[in-house]
Amino acid sequence: MAEVTYLEALRQGLWEELERDENVFMLGEDIGEYGGAFKVTEGFLEKFGAGRIIDTPISEAAIVGAAAGAAHMGMRPIAEMQFIDFISCAYDMLTNYVATARYRAGLATPIVVRGPSGGYVRGGPFHSQMPEAAFFHTPGLKLVCPATARDAKGLIKSAVRDDDPVIYFEHKFLYRRIKEDLPDDEEILTPIGKARVAREGSDLTIITWSAMVWKCLDAAEELASSDGASVEVLDLRSLIPMDDAAILGSVRKTNRVLIVHEDTRTGGIAGEITSRINEGAFEWLDAPVRRVTAHDTPIPYAPTLEDYVLPGADDVVEAARLLLAY
């Protein structure tokens, strides 16, 4: 056992996959000699060589497009976006080319596109985004969003082995803030599409993912100690595919649901989850499904503004109390 950060766990996962399969390679801006803007790939160039750790020009569309082409030929590319905010520059490539390749042309495109995502770091409008919903709506892309160090490792490894394109949203707020003991002698593979119960409970289910899992766990703790409430926290881990069975199972158990995400409200994934619950477990509900999300604005820079726009544990507690009292 060794205690590793979320970032280190991700790094280990990438490293192990590069070691395991010579078809795995990485491409992105400043990932080689510099080791990446956040040092996720520190030491990779020395170990795997410039042939497999490729520093690219600032060309996100080319990075993703080239990854797709290589993937058609049997390679397993991992493309890094320096910040996930820049994935928008590859939106066309991802949604039109990559996402449709299997359906329209029978082409396998096993690529991973990954990058530092999310807010709470005072990064302003272009270094704080959590653009999951933009890709959620496009059939053909898998979306994963680890919350724990274990899953950071287990999901990147599964993503690399997956036969479909996967966008891996790693949360930069978690990079060095959370640590976990991980075994050295056991391969960690987190199945894509399986949710995880982060905390068991019986009065209310909070459905969430990524960094919000930690805020929801804080909220659940607060609700337990001050309200005596038993709150279940379900970490989805993967948005596409989504673990409907786990969602509906938990709803049937607690009969009250709060959905929490960091992304903005309108068109956010909470809307889709709510519909699935309505369709699959309406008669089990004792209260309307509620959501806590970011406000519908860009992410502002000032700490006071960012904290207001993004959801916090206090917002979760407040919404949970409404549901518990319903």
Binding site: H295, P300, A302, Y308
Partner: peptide, 10 residues
């Protein structure tokens, strides 16, 4: 610093 609520609008 700005007041939190001023994040809304615009």
């Amino acid at each position: 610093l700005p007041e939190g609520e001023s994040a809304i609008g615009g």
